[in-house]
Design a binder for these strands. Sequence first.
DNA 1: TCGATTTGACCGGG
DNA 2: CCCGGTCAAATCGA
Length: 251
Amino acid sequence: MASSCSESERVEQVISELSRGRDIADRIRVMLRQTGSDGSVQILVRQLLDTFNHSLTVLTHAAADDSGEVSQAAKSEDSCKPPPPPKDRRGCYKRKRSSDTTIKMSSDLCEDGHAWRKYGQKAILNAKHPRSYFRCTHKFDQGCQASKQVQQIQDDPPLYRTTYNGQHTCDKSPLNHHHILPTPPDSSIIWSFNRPVDSVKQEEVQIKSPSEDDYMSPFLDLSGDVYSCTASTHSIEDVVGSIEDFLNFNP
DNA sequence: TCGATTTGACCGGG
DNA sequence: CCCGGTCAAATCGA
């Protein structure tokens, strides 16, 4: 892992190229449908689309994992502070399972329409930059369970990964945030891992989809460089793991 | 003064 | 036992 910075840049380029390939394949699929072409050809094109989507998923995951190689030499112990009083916080919180998680890759920290309150920051092993933890400002007054993590995964150009957890149940405008971004999302990649009962996200898919047919890939492709993946029964790790297995046949 | 952020400690899953 | 996620006291700033 000597040159992971340039490596992540290359990964981004590959992601971009794969996106184009996926779009082209998608257009071919539409044309085949319109011309009533051979069903077996359509299946092949569908598989091609899946391959593009799988590859994009793996690369995004790899870019995130690979984004740092720097030492965690920031563990400086402060010895000049008085010892804090002992606190018993056993059982004071439960770690959440990663259900209903949306990962957004973005070149800037654009506003998503919700009020967030930062509650923590942590240096992550093998990551250059610390990860910041946010929860909805209305967590306590309205019980909103939404939270997000933001981590810079690349320096030049800056690339941020924002992981959204949970749904906003607060009064603020719910969940149109992908559509009300002040800047066009063409520099972002959004991966949504949702259950099919998640009507809000499904609506998002419908809005973004080019209103076509009944393409039944588990990977729903959206317009532009925004992608969504529906994982009906799997966790993100399961999906990514199976994709990685799949890609072992396509190195 | 009060809400937001920072930061080190604590907890628990893997 | 390591490391990521969360808590909460200290600090900041409007």
